[in-house]
Design a protein around this nucleic acid. Structure first.
Length: 492
RNA sequence: CGGGAUGUAGCGUAGCCCGGUUAUCGCGCCUGGUUUGGGACCAGGAGGUCGCAAGUUCGAAUCUUGCCAUCCCGACCA
């Protein structure tokens, strides 16, 4: 049929694209590098967003919204940050179009409408936010300032991929200001933990918490913490970052506060973000050759009910029964969809909802009603069984939790199997090609070696895990002494 | 941004090399009917600026040039 998807073994990239497009999550758009997020994909994002938003608020944060445009002079104030993003910035230079006198019916940029100062379309909002914080912060009593914003940003990437890297993407960015270094560092770690908890508990995706090396650090940060996840093709994906910004932005934007001793001090800052990229991680971590597999806790539809008719007469009683089941499921807080469309037959619906990753499917026909049972199929294991209608809601509530856990366990087992220790350069290279995944290996701690390893192997240091044990060894590349193993992988 | 490939109805495609009536087929879509426990069947029907724009030509889906978009591989990156 037209909805067949490429298998992972045949072409992993194409498999991923097929799931995104045919699973109804997103579509290509008329704009290079930008995608349309379709209702089903956006519902998924909304579920993720709502949960994260709740967790941010539980940790004392509030939402605000800052402008899309950043005056160039503000943008360049924090030098390292500006430099880091400079080559991927979209820039607004004019504010008006006019009719093209040489080309009827066409428009042209009006050369008379050139902006005095160019506006950078935000690749991130530190600059505009810190220029604002300057006015908001005077005393230690104004601190901490704990603000998050849900926004779109633009980064002009060379090569784009649906959800994983698009020119425009949706994200949240938290920007906090603190009176002490310690408090800011604690905030950085706290939000890293919020991300890890969210990704593990809601997206059923195990992550490694770690700190980035200097070369992988966010431009303008003192330290960048991250959560790293492993995809089914053995490539790593950075799922979220939390930055300790020190006083870099406070100094660049002159944000000082009066402390209890009546002395001026620069504030300490953090920023942290996750994006729609998480959806890409979700797809690549869990799904199979039949389609998406979505964890129940964030799936737009948790249970789909497909009626099995036997002639017109059976429709009414089935509808009646299904409505009763739906009412109960909804009361239990379950997102349920009744697919009673006459346009397609049951078999087609089964395949369609499997492609879309709906965790549980119920099929109900007259035969089932006579026996007071329902056919239940779970997406994660493809297991199908007949269960009693009595206590159905309770059963489903428990099963959803079990599916959530099972998906997590599977991903965790995969990551465990595909995390290896390499003790020599040859072994390291062989692993990357033959059994791709995380590779734990000794590194001498220098940027030069890191760069050489990257050049020679295409693998990067994903992070120095936070729970790393200190263990002496020798660097796999340079042979120099090393204090600990770090986590390498080829990455998205 | 470099290399490679692609673009014909919502999707998948034939035709293009070698220009010539009304652009092929399947799926999907619409109408009616029969159906419905793993991607139904019959009958009828609608749907196309052949990616866009110039050019060559009596005539362009087909030849030329430019542009746009997508995919794959690099460099860059969340």
């Amino acid at each position: 049929m037209s909805k067949e998807i490429t298998t992972r073994a045949a072409d992993y990239s194409q498999w991923y694209n097929d799931l995104v497009i045919k699973g109804g999550l997103a579509d290509y758009s008329a704009v290079r590098g930008c995608m349309v997020i379709k209702p089903y994909g956006f519902a998924l994002w909304e579920n993720m967003r709502d949960q994260l938003d709740k967790m941010f608020k539980e940790t004392g944060h509030v939402n605000a919204y800052f402008p899309l445009f950043v005056p160039k002079s503000l943008f360049e104030a924090e030098e390292k940050n500006a430099e880091g993003f400079a080559k991927e910035c979209a820039v607004v230079t004019h504010y008006r179009l006019k009719n093209d006198p040489d080309n009827k019916g066409k428009l042209m940029v009006d050369p008379e409408a050139k902006l005095e100062e160019e506006l950078v379309v935000r690749p991130t909002s530190e600059a505009i936010i810190w220029s604002t914080y300057k006015d908001w912060i005077q005393s230690y009593r104004d601190l901490p300032l704990l603000i998050n914003q849900w926004a779109n940003v633009v980064r002009w990437e060379m090569r784009t991929r649906l959800f994983l890297r698009t020119t425009e993407f949706l994200w949240q960015e938290g920007h906090t200001a603190h009176a002490t270094q310690q408090e800011a560092v604690e905030e950085t770690i706290k939000m890293l933990n919020v991300y890890a908890d969210f990704v593990e508990e809601y997206m059923a995706l195990p992550v490694i918490k770690g700190v980035k090396t200097a070369s992988e650090r966010f431009a303008g940060a003192e330290d960048t913490y991250c959560i790293e996840a492993l995809m089914q093709d053995g490539k790593a994906l950075q799922a979220g970052t939390s930055h300790f910004l020190g006083q870099n932005f406070a100094k660049a934007f002159d944000v000082q506060f009066l402390n209890k001793e009546n002395k001026q001090e620069y504030v300490w800052a953090t920023s942290w973000g996750v994006s729609t990229r998480l959806i890409g991680a979700l797809i690549m971590a869990h799904s199979d050759d039949q389609g998406l597999i979505l964890p129940p806790r964030i799936a737009p539809v948790q249970v789909v009910i497909v009626p099995i008719y036997k002639g017109e007469d059976s429709k009414a009683p089935i509808h009646e029964k299904v409505n009763a089941i739906m009412k109960e499921l909804k009361e239990a807080g379950i997102r349920v969809l009744y697919d009673d469309s006459d346009a397609s037959r049951p078999g087609w619906k089964f395949a369609e909802h499997e492609l879309k990753g709906v965790p549980i499917r119920l099929a109900i026909g007259l035969r089932d009603m006579e026996n007071n049972v329902v056919e239940l199929a779970r997406r994660d294991t493809k297991e199908k069984k007949t269960i009693s209608m009595d206590g159905l809601t309770h059963y489903i509530v428990q099963l959803l939790a079990e599916i959530q856990q099972n998906i997590y366990n599977k991903a965790l087992a995969f990551r465990t199997e595909n995390t290896r220790e390499a003790n020599s350069w040859e072994e390291f290279l062989r692993m990357l090609d033959e059994t791709p995944g995380f590779i734990s290996a000794h590194w001498d701690g220098t940027e030069e070696t890191e760069e050489k390893i990257k050049e020679a192997s295409k693998a990067t240091i994903r992070c120095i895990p936070l729970d790393n044990v200190v263990a002496e060894g020798v660097c796999i590349f340079s042979g120099k002494p090393s204090k600990q193993r770090v986590l390498f992988a080829r990455a998205y």
